[in-house]
């Protein structure tokens, strides 16, 4: 699992990646210093749950992923049945490339979990 996260982190502009469960508990992480994995995990789980409620369908599997684009960095997360893969990037990172890599990585993670 660590290898998968390392591969994601090799993409230019990526500052770190985390795998969490739907409750926000960290399964694996590889973050640059300065990023607090617990804070990020809890925040992503909270946003994920809020989006699920907002969609008013009660079906979390409807959500593929969410991108949060801010002035000093981005958080992208992709959702699978039992986990969420989170990647933190700098502004200006190639979001398309990161997303493609994340999709491939998520499939590997799903096989492991």
């Amino acid at each position: 699992m660590k290898n998968i996260l390392n591969q994601i982190n090799d993409i230019p502009g990526v500052k770190g990646s985390v795998v969490i469960d739907k409750e926000g508990l960290v399964i694996a992480s590889n973050l640059m210093s300065g990023l607090e994995e617990r804070t990020i995990s809890a925040m992503v789980a909270s946003i994920f749950n809020q989006v699920v409620k907002s969609l008013a369908r009660g079906q979390e599997e409807q959500i593929y992923g969410v991108q949060l684009l801010a002035s000093e960095g981005n958080i992208i997360f992709l959702c699978a049945q039992h986990c969420i893969l989170i990647v933190i990037t700098e502004t200006g990172a190639n979001i398309g490339l990161v997303s493609i890599k994340m999709k491939a990585s998520l499939e590997h993670l799903m096989d492991m979990l």
Binding site: Q62, L69, A70, S71, E72, I75
Partner: peptide, 12 residues
């Protein structure tokens, strides 16, 4: 990470 500018939610 600064001020949020955009959120993109991708669903089925």
């Amino acid at each position: 990470l600064g001020e949020l500018e955009r959120v993109v939610i991708d669903t089925r």
